[in-house]
Design a binder for these strands. Structure first.
Lengths: 223, 223
DNA sequence: CCCTTAATCAAACAAACGATTGACAAACTC
DNA sequence: GAGTTTGTCAATCGTTTGTTTGATTAAGGG
């Protein structure tokens, strides 16, 4: 049995600063997403990460420093999930599905919104990503309905996508469903996409017709 | 100078349990709305109310009891601000204006959403109020677009209305505006109403055409 | 193999939190 | 007006919080 003395693959060391830092960051993401900044507990984060509580102060600048570091890394990842060239309704459908596949990310944005005091750690990337969406909207709805502000419209759609995470009480009361139920989230995501189509956003900038539409049609509204 | 010994108007007493309780409730609303449950401080609430901290435990069942009592009273008030018979776009415009006139109310709903664990203190009234909105939507959009779920649509619109409070970072980054600026909020509220109209919700159930539309028109969308 | 560096931990610390205690005085009862 | 009730407060308590200290041990370089 060959004993690898200097294996090229980094063998599992007992002490690895980078690995430990990442473990803490991941644990922090879960804890902050679950309870917000004020509700999160350093002890709980350390326990999740399986490390001593003191390491949080050792590697980061206390609770606030950890929160800032975690926010930046998180948003940096988050800003790279959008594929350009995808039709808007499909993009919205996918973002609404984040309520199911990445609820922590959605919650993070929501917490940051309520705790917003003027500075937005790592918000530049998200803004850049969203700006592309604004352009898509502008090119689609611009000549059709010149009184609609693309910026506001995108904000509305984004808020709408996040509703299963941000307004679960309302959904539970109104739809008589568990807001986390995969079937409902899928239904809701579909509805968001359909609303976007109804607003005339059903084609991407290259003129490709939206493939997501199924039985949806649009008769005269009488307006 | 007549000294009123038994004035019919309740003269200002030095000690008035009901008045103090209400002061605490009001202060609690401001504090909880500003910082959420975990971030709110009993000391700060007592300071806001101008009373001794101990009175919170005396009149209510600790922090949690105070939060519950405050939530119930708040939502009970909140559920009575909707005037039936108002066209949906106008109702939405007014609700979006709450971001300006009653930001605490909007923030309360948002905090409750993120902290939702299954029970919703006093959510029955809000559900009843929103159920009327669902019926309006159903009667308006039902035969026009049978694939749109009125429940989901109302949830989306409500989340969209709350965006200036729930997603101020996004608005600040995307619209280059102060999300609290009255001019912007007015603009945003107008936009929400216009979107509702574009979705075919521009008339109330009695068939009255929407009075809120100004320059908005509706050409063929090409769909 | 020794010695320095760095990663980790257990224990303790001061501050802040929510809650309790006991005293006191205004308001009400008779 | 005496006595009971009750609204209020100052002071303090036990707990939890985030952080710091000092010791311990793995890792790496000579």
């Amino acid at each position: 049995m060959p004993r690898p003395r200097r294996s090229p693959a980094p063998q599992e060391r007992l002490r690895d600063a980078e690995r430990t830092k990442q473990r803490i960051l991941d644990a922090a993401a879960g804890e902050f997403a679950a309870h917000g900044y004020a509700g999160a507990r350093i002890r709980a984060i350390a326990e999740r990460a399986g490390v001593n509580q003191q390491l949080v102060s050792y590697y980061f600048d206390g609770k606030e420093g950890l929160f800032r570091a975690m926010s930046e890394q998180w948003q940096q990842r988050q800003a790279q999930i959008s594929e350009p060239g995808t039709p808007l309704p499909e993009q919205l459908r996918r973002y609404a599905m984040e309520n199911l596949h990445n609820p922590d990310g959605v919650r993070m944005v929501a917490w940051n919104g309520l705790q917003y005091t003027g500075d937005d750690p790592g918000g530049t990337e998200r803004t850049a990503m969203l700006a592309r969406g604004v352009e898509q909207i502008a090119s689609l709805v611009g000549d059709d309905n010149p009184d609609l502000d693309p910026h506001c419209l995108l904000v509305m759609l984004m808020a709408a996508c996040m509703a299963p995470t941000t307004l679960p009480q309302v959904i539970a009361g109104l739809c008589q469903t568990d807001p986390k139920d995969p079937q409902f989230v899928e239904h809701y995501a579909d509805q968001v996409a359909r609303v976007a189509e109804s607003l005339g956003l059903g084609a991407d900038s290259s003129g490709t017709p939206s493939p997501a539409r199924r039985r949806s049609r649009r008769a005269g509204t009488g307006l």
